[in-house]
Design a protein around this nucleic acid. Sequence first.
DNA 1: GCCAACGTTGGC
DNA 2: GCCAACGTTGGC
Length: 154
Amino acid sequence: MAYWLMKSEPNCFSIDDLAARPDQTAGWDGVRNYQVRNMFRDQMRIGDQAFFYHSSCAVPGIVGIMRIVSDAYPDPTQFDPRADHYDPKSTPEHPRWLQVDVKFECKFARPVTLATLRAHQERLKGLQVLQPGNRLSVTPVREDHWHYILQLAS
DNA sequence: GCCAACGTTGGC
DNA sequence: GCCAACGTTGGC
């Protein structure tokens, strides 16, 4: 089983939004980056766990945990001309973008902020979200990092 | 709102 | 295939 970190802007889709969904499950749509698409397709598996990270907000950081509950499948928003992430070059016959379904697992009582992660960067060396210029919205998390961050949340 | 990083696009 | 222009991300 693998571990991930997935970013979302909370004013767009927050961990509370996920928890409020029917079955606390939602499609992680809107990804328009080939590296992330390939990760969805080639590396992410049902049962994997992911940190929910709030980005572009007052206090960026990890706010909880979710689980991957589907294989990768075409992101329906790419075909919808009214959707923000509509892609006119994509067709249902040859979909370009994929998504996975994620299910809420828990929300941390205390978020692990980006500042906290930075304060522990010696122990979290190699965590992609701490690397300058990191822009991927989905990144793998090493198992030892995963468990260390869980301790920071408790 | 600024700005650095970096992915994508498109002309050649 | 190169590379400049452009757009997006995301912290501050």
